[in-house]
Simulated assay, not measured.
Amino acid sequence: MGCGKKFDTGNCVADILKDIVEAQNDIVENCCDTSCDQSISDLLGESDNGNGLDTVPVILYCKDCKPFKGFGAPRHNGGIGDIVASFIFRVKKVDDDNCAVLELLLKDGETCGHDHLKDPTDQDTHNLEATGICLTVDLDCFCHVTCLPAISAFNN
């Protein structure tokens, strides 16, 4: 290891970040307005009873630190509709082998192609809806998850 001393976790960056969090927590309460914990709390109604929320939208990042973009196509008149893409997903299922089923979330009525989406900031997050378009991923391929504020993806 090239960090110069033995660290508790074997990862000098992780140990330094843990030390920073511990020091910050000694000074001020350490909570975030937007985080996975906050989104889950909002979804469960712990912060606002009866809120009607049903989804924690997530953005996943591959091990190369690039955001993951999923592709799929809806059923259309007994065939296949246009291929769509999204950086934002609803987690449908996670199994014991770290495989997950993700559903693409798109702006209400959005059916355009994927060329305009270069990164997550290109995607409109207003009125995200469940699309019914799902894909299966290996969660061991990801190193980062960003949770967006909880939404109602089925009742727009």
Score class of each variant (00 low, 15 high):
Ser35Asn: 13
Asp26Met: 11
Cys62Gly: 09
Gly50Lys: 12
Thr125His: 10
Asp122Asn: 14
Gly72Phe: 00
Thr55Trp: 00
Ala130Val: 05
Leu102Ile: 00
Cys62Arg: 10
Val94Ala: 13
Cys32Trp: 08
His76Pro: 05
Asp82Phe: 00
Pro120Ala: 06
Ile40Cys: 10
Gly81Ile: 02
Cys31Asn: 13
Val91Ala: 13
Arg90Thr: 06
Leu53Gly: 04
Val101His: 02
Asp42Pro: 03
Leu53Pro: 00
Asp64Arg: 00
Asp64Ala: 05
Ala100Asp: 01
Leu117Lys: 01
Ile80Thr: 14
Glu110Tyr: 14
Leu44Glu: 14
Ala23Trp: 09
Ser86His: 04
Val13Thr: 07
Asn25Val: 04
Phe71Tyr: 09
Asp95Arg: 02
Asp26Lys: 13
Ile20His: 03
Ile133Pro: 01
Asn98Lys: 08
Leu128Arg: 01
Lys93Ala: 11
Glu46Tyr: 13
Leu43Pro: 00
Asp108Ser: 14
Ile80Leu: 14
Cys112Asn: 15
Asp64Val: 00
Thr125Gln: 15
Asp119Ile: 04
Leu104Cys: 07
Glu103Leu: 01
Val101Trp: 04
His76Asp: 13
Gln38Ala: 15
Gly109Glu: 05
Lys18Asp: 14
Phe87Met: 04
Gly52Asn: 15
Gly45Ser: 08
Asp15Val: 08
Gly132Phe: 02
Ala73Gln: 12
Gly78Asp: 02
Pro74His: 06
Ala23Ile: 12
Ala23His: 09
Ser47Cys: 02
Lys118Cys: 08
Lys118Tyr: 02
Pro57Phe: 07
Asp108Gln: 14
Leu44Pro: 11
Glu103Trp: 04
Asn30Met: 15
Cys99Ser: 14
Thr34Gly: 01
Asp64Glu: 03
Gly52Ile: 09
Gly78Leu: 02
Glu129Lys: 08
Gly72Arg: 03
Thr34Asp: 13
Asn127Asp: 13
Thr111Phe: 13
Val91Asn: 08
Thr125Gly: 12
Gly132Asp: 07
Asp33Ser: 09
Ala23Gly: 11
Gly78Val: 01
Leu44Phe: 10
Gly79Asp: 04
Arg90Met: 10
Pro74Ile: 06
Lys69His: 07
Pro120Lys: 01
Val13Gln: 09
Lys63Ile: 03
Gly50Cys: 15
Gly132Thr: 06
Leu128Gly: 00
Leu60Lys: 01
Lys92Thr: 07
Asn25Met: 11
Val56Phe: 00
Ile16Pro: 01
Ala85Ile: 04
